[in-house]
């Protein structure tokens, strides 16, 4: 089959971009969407034009590298599918498709379809972990974990950090991503000691990264390739309220210079993790 692709081309961060239109012939139903882009790039290279830059690595839906909008929908809109898993058998000869990078203030476009998602790493740095120096752990079976909790933690931990939730959200909010990490760690018994600090710190970090707030559109859940549910955001909000209440009753630890907590949390003076 033959497709027409309108692809966002942008040389580098800050440069202005534009759509370029390309026809790709010889696409077969057993190809994947990224293999179609590979084919386009081979053609471009043969013509002496710069190939379209896009990210991918595992090409099996697990690394979270890939992702762009196809006709405005993150990952192309098939349930539970990243764009690298998207098969061409779902497209038809003559289709015209528009490909754009994630659009969000926190995700700068660095070339064509590639955006910078390091904001997610910074959210994790703020508290997305359980502090356990190597060598200090007890026997794995000394901690009993209810199967239900293990399963819920797993469902949340399945997030691949692709950023589709942010791209789909009209406010470019990172709530679903952050909620997934919190749900993973806050659900497990091992995660309890840092439960409140983690909640406050990660939410503060998220607020610092130019992500918008959540107004319950639900677009994030609809495009999430790993089926992370919106209800995790509800749990996160609940955790936040409990954490703010608990922390207020404690003596405020010294604030951590160098990090800028968001205003509400600043009042409670949390950021003691490094002390």
């Amino acid at each position: 089959m033959k497709l027409t692709l309108k692809v966002w081309r942008q040389q580098e961060a800050g440069a202005s971009g534009r759509f370029a239109t390309y026809d790709v012939d010889g696409v077969t139903p057993d190809m994947s969407f990224l293999e179609t882009l590979d084919l386009l790039n081979e053609n471009l290279l043969a013509r002496g034009e710069a190939p379209v830059a896009f990210e991918s690595d595992c090409r099996e839906g697990i690394c979270g590298s890939c992702g762009f909008l196809i006709n405005g929908v993150a990952h192309g809109g098939r349930p539970g599918t990243t764009v690298c898993q998207l098969s061409m058998r779902f497209f038809e000869d003559g289709d015209v498709l528009t490909l754009e990078p994630w659009r969000a203030r926190a995700f700068q476009v660095i070339r064509d379809l590639i955006v910078e998602r390091s904001a997610f790493d910074r959210i994790v740095q703020a508290g997305g972990f359980i502090s356990v120096p190597v060598g200090s752990a007890r026997d794995g079976n000394a901690i009993l974990v209810q199967k239900e909790s293990a399963d819920t933690a797993f469902d949340a931990a399945a997030c691949i950090g692709c950023g589709a939730c942010v791209a789909a959200c009209p406010n470019a909010s990172a709530m679903l991503f952050t909620a997934a990490k919190l749900m993973h760690l806050n659900t497990l018994p091992q995660g309890q000691p840092q439960h409140h600090l983690r909640t406050l710190d990660m939410i503060a970090a998220m607020q610092n990264e130019h992500f918008g707030s959540c107004t319950n559109h639900g677009e994030c859940e609809a495009v999430c390739p790993k089926g992370i549910p919106m209800e995790f955001i509800g749990s996160m909000n609940h955790d936040l309220i409990t954490a703010m209440f608990r922390r207020r009753r404690e003596r405020p630890p010294a604030p951590d210079v160098g990090k800028q907590p968001y205003h509400e949390i600043e009042e409670t003076g949390s950021r003691s993790r490094n002390k």
Binding site: F129, G135, K147, A150, A153, A157, Q190
Partner: peptide, 22 residues
Amino acid sequence: VNIIDQCVAQGVPFAREYGGLL
């Protein structure tokens, strides 16, 4: 054996049985 202990403590959601064991 230490690896499993370390990973469990970090919060790796290994599969569990109904009794809560790995």
